[in-house]
Write a protein that binds this DNA or RNA. Structure first.
Lengths: 185, 185
DNA sequence: TTTTGCGTTCGAGTGCGCTCGAAGGCGTAG
DNA sequence: CTACGCCTTCGAGCGCACTCGAACGCAAAA
């Protein structure tokens, strides 16, 4: 839940649309500050914070994405840096970066400062991947909105968006009659 | 490749950004017209058109998403309606709809016109999912752009985006010095 | 003292969406 | 005639990212 909360708050901070302002970026950065968190956290606390399962956190560790210290009982102790890295890892995973690429990136981090240029290459490439994906999704969204707006097609005569439609926002383009019957999909 | 071409052309038609105009939606719709295609197509031709493998097309058929006629040799013959449905299916898959939901939707289509309201529910829900996904990606994109712009952190002193960086567009916010060292991720 | 509840390791299992291999049929090219 | 190339069906295999079960440890609560 907690990560969803972060996401939600961040989205609210960003506002509905428009170009992302520097101000918005700072607000976003603030959300990653992690101020107010305890100095060390248990696996359950981190899992809760990031909306991952303890299983997944152990899996990331097994996968070499992060090293976590243990206490006297052999229990994991996540310090602030570990949490910061996990925030980063989670963000990359959520935005679609494969585990493999993330492992490569982390190996660069662990290899030292001279790998910074290569790390930047990875980040830039992933940035471009996200941009492409957003464009693809925007295109599909447009097509689906069009389909919703003009749905009627060959399937039946009495086609009208029912009141039960749950979505918010502009589902219809009232002044745009469909130019031809749509397929009954 | 062909679907990528469609995508590319559609994206170009839509322009770089801004709210999607009705005009743009019409241009987009035109791209789905499939005018100029032969009346029937072989599996290889359809695969080529949609940038899927013949394997995948057979898999969709096995999964009950589409029925395809056969010729005298038992070979699949895709008519215009089949191709139209596959365009739709491909778009839904590309935009992240699970096979299960698609199977449900198709079962509604096959059940007749009285399922139109429920179909609209499915479409609206998927539309909202895409919107959420775009917002998530936009947020991640912003964070990654911020990281690229301010990359330096604790890893080393001589941090500067190398000439090898391949991306286009605004990678840097020149007047925004990082407010604190970033972690060496 | 026993139970509850959290943690540990290890390896195996799951769900998704393909992806492939095997074995064979048909029609054309050389 | 043989080979090539594309098609068919069927079932199995794969890559990914988890997800879970088993067997156990430790410690505070009942």
């Amino acid at each position: 839940m907690a990560t969803d909360d972060l996401m939600t708050r961040a989205l609210e901070a960003l506002g509905d649309d428009g170009p992302l302002s520097v101000e918005a970026i700072h607000r976003l950065a603030d959300l990653t500050d992690l101020a107010g968190l305890p100095e060390t956290m248990t696996i359950a606390e981190v899992a809760d914070l990031l909306d991952l399962s303890p299983h997944t956190l152990r899996y990331y560790e097994r996968a070499g994405l992060i090293e976590v210290a243990r206490d006297g009982h052999g229990h994991r102790v996540y310090d602030a840096e570990a949490v910061r890295r996990l925030v980063f890892l989670t963000r990359m995973r959520l935005s679609g970066m494969p585990m493999r690429d993330l492992q490569h990136y982390i190996s660069l981090v662990d290899a030292g400062g001279h790998t910074v240029p290569e790390r930047l290459d990875v980040l830039v490439e992933h940035r471009d991947t996200i941009r492409r994906r957003i464009r693809e999704l925007t295109l599909s969204l447009t097509a689906i909105e069009y389909k919703i707006a003009t749905y009627g097609g060959t399937a039946g005569p009495d086609v009208q968006a029912p009141g039960a439609v749950t979505g918010t926002g502009r589902a219809a383009l009232p002044d745009e009659p469909p130019r031809r019957a749509l397929p009954a999909e």
